[in-house]
């Protein structure tokens, strides 16, 4: 990575796009900035130049892609903010989760498995909506927590959302299989 500008590498993703370091985000603006930067650095713009330029372009474009993917997704963005703040989310230790939450997740998971087994699309649809709604609500809490500097609370919400997003994905997959 000798050619890759060190300052830029060490810059955080928010600074790369010139955006404030916070959970609240103007997604349209991020997309516009992403496209503008890619229009400068993408390998296609440097294909007729020397190998060293091509390599540089690839490194830049890779970096910009990663930055965009991280900031675009609210869960990745939150984890990244916590990481920047030096706050350990403690993903490895399940003990950080409340028992009530884990119990609820297990119940939901069983309900999904049952509905999937009997091909109950209506039940899966209802669950899909319910979990989807909860997720939306928690993201707005997460934003408040992060931008209000309640990092412990944010960490808890991130852990919960990781469970819920996974569940949501499972319901989605089950629906997809039943549809075909």
């Amino acid at each position: 990575m000798t050619n890759f500008d060190l300052e830029t590498l060490q810059q955080d993703f928010f600074s790369l796009f010139g955006l404030p370091r916070q959970q609240a985000l103007d997604a349209d603006k991020l997309e516009l900035l992403y496209r503008d930067i890619q229009a400068q650095v993408h390998p296609d713009k440097h294909a007729h130049l020397a190998d060293s330029d091509k390599r540089l372009a690839m490194q830049w474009a890779t970096h910009v892609n990663e930055a965009y993917q991280t900031l675009k997704d609210p869960l990745k963005r939150a984890r990244y903010l916590l990481h920047l703040a030096g706050h350990d989310v403690g993903l490895e230790s399940n003990t950080a989760m409340s028992g009530a939450f884990l119990m609820e997740q297990m119940n939901l998971r069983e309900t999904v498995a049952e509905a999937k087994a009997v091909g109950d699309v209506a039940a899966l649809d209802a669950l899909h909506r319910r979990v989807g709604k909860e997720i939306v609500a928690e993201y707005s809490q997460l934003q408040q927590a992060l931008d209000g500097q309640s990092l412990n609370r944010a960490g808890t919400l991130v852990r919960q959302l990781m469970f819920q997003e996974k569940l949501f994905q499972e319901i989605d997959d089950a629906l997809a299989i039943l549809e075909t």
């Binding site: 500008d5 300052e7 830029t8 900035l33 503008d36 930067i37 229009a39 400068q40 650095v41 540089l56 372009a57 830049w60």
Partner: peptide, 8 residues
């Protein structure tokens, strides 16, 4: 490259 990004 850096300059062109800053300009963008």
């Amino acid at each position: 490259m850096n300059q062109s990004v800053q300009r963008a």
